[in-house]
Design a protein around this nucleic acid. Sequence first.
DNA 1: CGAGGACTAAATGAGGCGCC
DNA 2: GGCGCCTCATTTAGTCCTCG
Length: 261
Amino acid sequence: GFDKMASIHITADWPYFTRRRAYMREQHGDPSNPPMEISPAIFQVIREHGPRSSIDFKRKDMVDWSWGKPTRLARASLEILNAMGELLIHHRVGTRRVFDLTERLLPTELISALDPNETEKDYQNWHVFRRVGGLGLASPNASEYWGAILGVNTEIRRATLKRLVDSGDLMAVAVDGVPRQTFFIRMADLPVIEAVQKKRSPRARAVFIAPLDNLLWDRNLVRRIFNFDYVWEIYKPEVERKYGYYVLPVIYGDRFVARVD
DNA sequence: CGAGGACTAAATGAGGCGCC
DNA sequence: GGCGCCTCATTTAGTCCTCG
């Protein structure tokens, strides 16, 4: 699915993403959009022959796509139908996704379930709260980690965070050594934080952190709290790389101590 | 603050080729 | 016809910096 970015989420969350699917349909679902024009053919093949991936469609037409590059029309079509909720990933072959009809993969009650968030405001509360949980410690400042929350800009986000504090779901906190900055945590995380602080000397072990791990969503915060500057260099031109294509941070105990590539 | 632009390499599989 | 080997095309996934 798609939450902050491409991600795995539990099927029980399907109804909560009704708004996102509708939004994707608004963006791409016009029948004259080339990937939509060929969608009936795609559906037919999958319905009759089972799960299919982009390479199973032989047509060579190209369309403009993300990453500033064109892509094959069939691939664009699968991708858009997936974003709109018509197709889901059945399995993967290596990194390639093989799609099947949503109606074959999800129970009917889930597909027909209503969006639990009745109003726009309900949705905003839900999604901002969910994202704060993902971040653990959330700065209200604009950044990529607030992305993909529909209709929420900086102003609305600040208002939503305030609402969630007022309702007792979130708590505003300050961090030692980071002056003049308010952060937000989930109230429900408080016992965990307190338990960790009480533990005298946790047994230290080394952990390799993946570049897209939640811990690294706010790289600014990592720099300020842990004094560790991390950039995933995969998207840097080779000559500009400092450490390597796929540098990973290494944590030992509660500190960032090294990098590996 | 937010829009827009620039940017990468590993893994996989299809297809061509020579050879038996 | 089929195997082994090679090459080539395709697919996958967001970050970060600049500018108005």
